[in-house]
Design a protein around this nucleic acid. Structure first.
Lengths: 346, 346
DNA sequence: AATCTTCGTCGAAGCGGTTCGACGAAGCGG
DNA sequence: CCGCTTCGTCGAACCGCTTCGACGAAGATT
């Protein structure tokens, strides 16, 4: 393994010159630069990341802390990760994914405090998130995906749930639906302060009310069984429902199964819209689901770019941005059977 | 940020003594150790990972190179990752996940060659995998999940596909099925030399032949549409089929949809077994799928443990191990309608 | 022409640890 | 009682790179 000294000797320059060629910190004449580059190529030189990190006090490693529960990562999260990785790589940074579950805050603290990470992107932030506190105390630059309850001081990128729900509801209302049920995450999730669940709930209420319609929300466990139960509950509360809006990638399959089980056809009897859903998952269902597609990879890229800005200038200030999901119409929505489309209010 | 010097000064010992307390490389008296530990606690000392890595030539970081395609990570892969992360953490190592796609071999080479990773676990290994070559050239200790074509020189952990297929077939045959179709990954995937697809194909042929039955295999694209097409092809080739064995988590939903579309009921008309499938996914379907559950987290743990053994003693030699999937019977398999169970051959 | 910048390069001092050789103090057998 | 290990500790030399101050050679300024 060649070192900088080897390169310097071969190129007949000093080590510092080699370093300047590498980092561009000081001007170097073209002739010298060429000599050095030739020597590096000949020796197949690769800088030692540890030494570089120690001397420069920057590891050039960014952490992406992601949740890893038993359910696995959806295509949405994956798009997010690849978007972030690409952005980091472009900027010459490595992105390491750390599967810190809820429990191991200590592990997180260690990572942050050992100066191994220049900055961190936090996924799936809770409204009150201990990890944020830990990282702030450790003084690690931070960008959130999602928002804490108090959004004042931190940088974040998040899905614009309000806008997304509004669009989804408008789509259904535009088709002529009046009785629309929103299937959210579980009651426990809501109680735990999961931002997306709470925000969409509120947005749904306000969107429906805005159309002069009555909002009905059902909480569903994240499982197929939960979806089936939720649909039953929905019919109990709103017997004439003609459309279901759901933000629960797991439950939605139960919902569809139960619909079929009741002899109801999608979309003729009941329209279904799935929110924050990747095209891949939407296509799994028969018929393919009309869905609000999340801006996954853009979200990842923007988060990393904001983080990098923080590293360069601490004066950078906060970056706060919301991105809406895009409506993609597939086979699971249509005008309700019993009425004409009403052209509604948009 | 306190350094070792600060700790040494406060404890009135030399830096090397502090280091020995930390690493346990040399004996230290209890009295001194206590003084040092007290000083560390008081200063809230955390060793600097970079400095430690530079001096010791070990980063204490293990890499897990995982594929990140658009489809996302299944629960199977996730279990794998969490198993690996837990094992690494127990041993005092960090595990970083690197989402290296197919393209960026350079990025991989850089990571490996910059001495940032002590060792690497490679997921989703192809029969002929360039990444293996790159890493071997870089001299990075390596453990594979999956196997290359030539298994002689490398350490690996893999699913025992032969055994898994044999069990799945035995289950169906035991129920009385005679016409069983195997839905594999796509023809392109097979052609690309994807080990699991090839091994299960061979195992299926041999298992069926062993029962005196004719093996019928269909290649399916990894999509719901692919599954539907595959089922149509299956009925074309084997009109009286009563059971489908599938190893394609995506296509299986299309298969189920198409079955329902044809007015066939699962499991009464056709039994379905899904291979290398997590309980979470199996439960998504209605009825829940009888599946061969992969030993995900065990696989991850074992891979990391083998890797750590490589780091300690290069004399460690290879570690090669196969783990079978466990049959979990749910609602998608039953005796075929037209015949009695036959008690078959086990 | 003398002085002042700017440019390009060098040498050396760290960055925060690990590790090796050395060395005094005990503990030991003979 | 003496020489010989063993134990516990220290000092110093790195690990491979960045970065700062210095300095000679040009080019610009007056």
């Amino acid at each position: 393994m060649a070192t900088m000294h080897d390169v310097a000797r071969l190129a007949r320059v000093s080590v510092s010159t080699v370093s300047y060629v590498l980092t561009g910190t000081r001007p170097i004449s073209q002739a010298t630069r060429d000599k050095v580059l030739a020597a590096m190529a000949e020796l197949d030189y690769q800088p030692n990341a540890m030494a570089r990190g120690l001397a420069s006090r920057r590891s050039r490693i960014l952490g992406l802390l992601m949740p890893m529960d038993e359910r696995g990562l959806g295509a949405t999260e994956t798009a997010f990760v690849t978007g972030a990785a690409a952005a980091a790589s472009t900027a010459g940074y490595h992105l390491v994914l750390s599967p810190v579950g809820g429990g191991d805050l200590d592990d997180l603290r260690r990572l942050a405090t050992q100066r191994m990470l220049d900055g961190v992107v936090l996924m799936e932030v809770q409204l009150a998130d201990e990890r944020v506190t830990v990282l702030q105390e450790a003084g690690v630059p931070l960008v959130l995906i999602g928002r804490t309850g108090d959004t004042s001081a931190l940088s974040y990128v998040d899905i614009d749930f309000e806008q997304t729900v509004r669009e989804a509801v408008a789509h259904l209302v535009g088709l002529g639906h009046r009785r629309i049920v929103y299937v959210n995450h579980s009651a426990a999730t809501l109680a735990s302060g999961y931002g997306p669940a709470l925000r969409t709930r509120d947005a749904f209420v306000s969107a429906m009310t805005g159309h002069g319609l009555e909002p009905v929300m059902i909480a569903a466990e994240d499982s197929a069984a939960g979806g089936r139960a939720a649909l039953a509950a929905a019919f109990a509360q709103a017997p004439e429902l003609t459309a279901v809006l759901a933000m629960n990638e797991t439950a939605i399959f139960g919902i569809l199964g139960e619909l079929t089980g009741r002899g109801l056809s999608v979309p003729d009897d009941v329209s279904v819209v799935s929110m924050v859903t990747s095209p891949q998952v939407a296509e799994l269902a028969t018929p393919a689901l009309t869905a609000m597609t999340s801006p996954g990879s853009a979200l990842g890229r923007i988060a990393i770019e904001a983080l990098l800005r923080h590293l360069d200038g601490p004066a950078g200030g906060r970056h706060q941005q919301l991105l809406p999901c895009a409506l993609e119409i597939r086979g699971s929505t249509a005008a309700p059977r019993s009425r004409q489309p009403m052209g509604a209010d948009q």
